[in-house]
Structure formats: C-alpha cells, structure tokens
Computed example of a mutant assay.
Amino acid sequence: MGGDSKNNKMTIHNISICRCGNALSGGEKFTDEVVSRWAKKYPSVNYFGWSQSSVEPGVCGIRTVNILKDNPSLGDRFKILVRYFIIIFKSLKFVKKFDTEKNIIVSHFDAWPNMLFAFLLKLANPTAYWIAVTHNLVFPNPFLRQHIYIKKFRIPNFFEVYQWLNQKLFFLMQKKADLLACGNATNREELLKKNANLHVIRYGREYFGEPETSMENKLYDICFLGRFHTQKGTDEIPDILRRLKKSHDQKLSVIFIAPKESPKKGDYLGWLEKEIAEIGYDFKFLGPKYGVEKYNFLKKSKILLFPSFFESFGLVYLDAISVGTPVVEYDLPCYDTHRAGVLKASFRDNEAFAQNLKRLLIDQELYKIKSLEGYNYSKTFDWDITANGFESYFEDYCDR
C-alpha cells in the first residue's frame, strides 16, 4: 500500500444496516474480521442496524453509526421485514456528500436495505468506489424447482420468492458498483455477466489453538453444527442415522449445536426425536454455541455431520477441520474448496453418506490421516489474507 498520507485521504464506509445484534453468520463474521483489519490502516465509518463495534478499542479514525438505538429482538420473519423498512427509512438522513477526497463504499450483504443505502450513497458520490458483497450463491427460480439441486415442481412459499426477488434487485443495483465480491466461484461465469469486475472472497479461520486428532480423546461420536432448515439438509439426518445404525450397530453419542426451533417444522427437536427414537443413540440438543464453547464441543467430537444442500462456503467445515475434526458431506460444486479433512458422498446418497461416517468411526488410521490433513489445510485460510485481498483495489482507486 501507499504511505500514511494516501491512506488518510481515503475513508471506507462499511454498510451493514440489516445487522441487528452480534450473533454471527458467515457473512457477519467476514464483516467483523475485515473491518477490524482495515480500521488499523484507514479511517472508517461503520453503519449498522445495531451492533457493538467490531473494532478493537483504541483504534483511531473509527466511527460506528447504529441506525437503531438499541438491539431489537428479531421476532419472526415478517417482523424482520417490517424492521427493514424502518431501518432504510432511518438511514436516509445519512445519504449525503462525503467530506473526504477518496471514499470506498462496501455493502457487506445483499439484503435490499443494505444495497439501497449503498446505491443511494453511490448516486450522491459518483466518484466513490463501491464494492458490492454477496455471500450467497445465485438462487434458482423458485417457480421452476425447489432449489438448485432438487428438480421438482412445487408452489414456493413467500420467503423463497422474496429471497429470489431480493437477489434480482441486488444484481440490478450492483450494476452501479465498481466491484462485485462473492463468496464462492461456483457461479463465476454467470456473475461475470453481471459485473465484469469480480473478486472471489477466500474466508479465514477463527480457531488458532491445537487440534485434537486422537479418537480416544473424543467424547462425542457425531456433531451437527448449524440451523435446522431444509437447505441445511437436516431432513436427511434421520435417514442417514438409520442407515448408519443398520451397518454399524453400536451405541453412539450425537450432539446438535443449533437453535431448537426450525422455520419449517417449528419444534424440530420434537420432530427429530420422534423420527429417530427407535435408533437408540444418545442425543443431546445443546442449543446455539459461540466462540470458545463452540470449538470445545467440536474438538470433543469425532466427526462433523454436514448434510447441507446449498452454501456459499460453509464455514462450519472450516470450524471443524481447524480443531482436527473430519467432516462428512455431500459432493457438490459449491464445496469445491473443501479439499481436505473430508469424506464426500454423492448428493442424497444417504447410504454412501452413512458408510463414510462408519469408515471414520472404525478406521483409526484413516481418521488420523483426515484429521491431520484437514488441520493443515485449515492453516491456509487466514482473515489477514482475506482483508489484504481487497487492498489492491483500494490502491488502484487511490492512485487515480
């Protein structure tokens, strides 16, 4: 990068106004990690719906603007939609000419209020450099198929249509963006048609402790980490575990690190208990876990069960291999970067999925290989590299 004088002439405006609270999705984790790193080099303004500052105390030149006065309870999806309208209305007073010479706008999510705010800032400041970030794959038309991998007709629900239309609006508004940044190269060719300037994000790992690669030191056989949702493949879990029980008749312990409620089934815990009651495994539903507590449970688990259908990257894969826990997942294009510490089964081939679980449970040599190769691979994912990957764009812009 250029000298300090050049950096001080440039301000980064981070837009994340749909964020209310501090529970982290993969996209929110990206925001926190890169913003805190950029803040050490450049003056920065962070616009959040509501959030505690992600920047270390004492870093100069940082201003965080919370559109809302406090952290609202999220409620159901319709309440969130109403809140979006409130947030975008309240954010309009911040749409104005910037008072610094060079300005970079980074819209961190593709939700429409986030994009609309960034779009209006770009219109008010046409010489600013706008980076439009999406952490989603391109959604298929919900009227033609259920989702990208299951090709069958059904009437989509309101939020499937909403999600699809929201992304259509994102791609329309990002035409004004100078750079489109995405979290997965799967849709690269399609995205290049929408913006010739494309950057593929490489995510970073959070855990830097020692891994646990010995099966003997693990307390749990199988761990699921995520949300209970069809997209996450959780409807496949009962079938996978029944097949595992049939070929590997052992008493296993299975933990679920996830909220107990599901948008699809409501009381997912009750539904799952009913579906798998006859299997006889020791199931524990632990609720959501974060930070050190999450990694402690992952580290004590032999295998991560990851049956998700549709992910931009799948940070839980990286969470698992960074502590030495191998992963079993479906072999899908969106997991092309999942190259070590993993066994893959063809999509919805639950017999092969169960056999991969069995292989890791009974073959200690294979387990050791996958555990170590996964841990070593995890070290190639670094948030410093993620943040630095954008700085060539900053430098080119400042040199204009």
Rank of each mutant, 00 (worst) to 15 (best):
S25L: 11
N8I: 00
R63E: 04
I86C: 06
L298A: 06
N217E: 12
W130A: 12
P211C: 02
L360T: 01
L332A: 11
R63M: 01
D267A: 02
L318W: 05
F98C: 15
E236M: 08
D282I: 04
P259V: 10
N356L: 00
C398Y: 08
G209D: 03
I131F: 04
I88P: 11
D76A: 02
L315G: 07
P259A: 10
N14I: 05
F94N: 06
Y281M: 06
G291T: 10
H229G: 05
N296F: 01
R348I: 11
D4H: 05
H199P: 14
A132L: 06
E273C: 05
L116F: 06
V59H: 14
Y220T: 14
A340Y: 11
E212N: 11
V316F: 02
E275N: 13
L137D: 02
Y290C: 12
E56S: 10
Y330C: 09
K300F: 00
D178A: 02
K246W: 09
A132S: 03
I12Q: 15
F139Y: 07
T234G: 05
D110G: 14
E28H: 13
F78C: 03
I62P: 15
H135Q: 01
K368L: 06
D178R: 03
F224K: 08
T11L: 09
K284I: 00
G280S: 11
E278V: 01
R202G: 10
F285T: 01
E160L: 09
L179Q: 10
Y129T: 15
T100S: 12
L191Q: 04
W38M: 13
T127H: 07
M1G: 13
C20K: 12
V55H: 15
E391V: 08
A277R: 03
K358M: 02
I150P: 11
K300S: 12
C20N: 12
L219E: 07
C398N: 09
N7E: 08
L165T: 11
F98Q: 02
D110R: 05
S5Y: 15
E101N: 10
F285C: 09
S301D: 12
P333H: 00
L315P: 03
E236H: 07
L304F: 03
R145M: 12
N296D: 12
K6E: 13
H147K: 10
K193M: 01
F109C: 06
T325A: 00
S16L: 15
S253E: 07
D99E: 06
G75I: 00
Q167C: 10
F139P: 11
Y393V: 07
L366N: 10
T31M: 04
T380Q: 08
M173K: 01
K284S: 13
K358H: 15
F85H: 13
V34T: 12
S54M: 14
D178Y: 08
A320F: 03
E101Y: 13
G291I: 14
D70V: 01
T380V: 09
F170I: 00
R83L: 03
F85E: 11
R63C: 01
K246A: 07
G291R: 04
S371E: 02
I12H: 09
F89I: 07
P238T: 04
S322D: 12
Q146W: 06
Y330R: 08
G183I: 13
I255R: 05
K194D: 07
